[in-house]
Amino acid sequence: MQLINFNQVSKSFFNQNQQTKVLDKISFIVNDHEIVSILGPSGCGKSTILNLINHLIEPTEGEIITNCKLGYMFQKDCLMPWRTIYKNVTIGLEITKDKSKDSIEFAKDLMRKYQIQEFSSYYPNELSGGLRQRVSLIRTLVLKPNLLLLDEPFSKLDFQTRLIVQDDVYSILKKEKKSALMVTHDIEEAIALSDRVIILTNRPTKIKKEIKFDFGEETPTERRKSPKFSSYFNEIYETINQSK
């Protein structure tokens, strides 16, 4: 099943002096149970793609079909420091005014399953960066999305924490059978986590190439160790540095 279908989408931003074309006829799809990465240099409009999917902005041309319930995970964990972990996790239920026992039990189950239960009454500033990122993912999962939009979710973490959190996020996504669309500028991150990568050009952004990865059930850390990892890395690296 197709969750997202980007059909010849262009997006321009206007200011007094000029029109900036950010996206130029981009087409791609994201299927069920698939983790797809969008890889591109800074400022190429990766976040614009996410905002388009989220309907926070409208495309200038083309159409976007979204067939799913979205969840959003950010670069920053966006936890609210004045709320306890439990209150942060259940913010989605508060917004949707869902007070049903099932939903609350579901949230508590998730917290138990991913070992943040014991921090329920803590405040975010008492938790480590990695743990906060996990809380932020659980908060998104509480609303039962089937597609997660990940906006460079690891870029604020130090390298060692990043490796741990990547494994963490990957296993949670797979266990919960969620699809994800991740934007990143980190080649290794894209290979370690996704089933498929879409490589973008500089602005005005087009799709340069799509590469499907052939890994089994390997975790991100295991993938990093595999010989295929470096050959994919080279392939992507060369694609990016290719002259047009």
Binding site: N54, Y72, F74, Q75, K76, G92, I95, T96
Partner: peptide
């Protein structure tokens, strides 16, 4: 980002 997070949760 906090506001976008809230908006994404409708």
């Amino acid at each position: 980002d906090l506001i976008i997070m809230m908006k994404s949760m409708k």
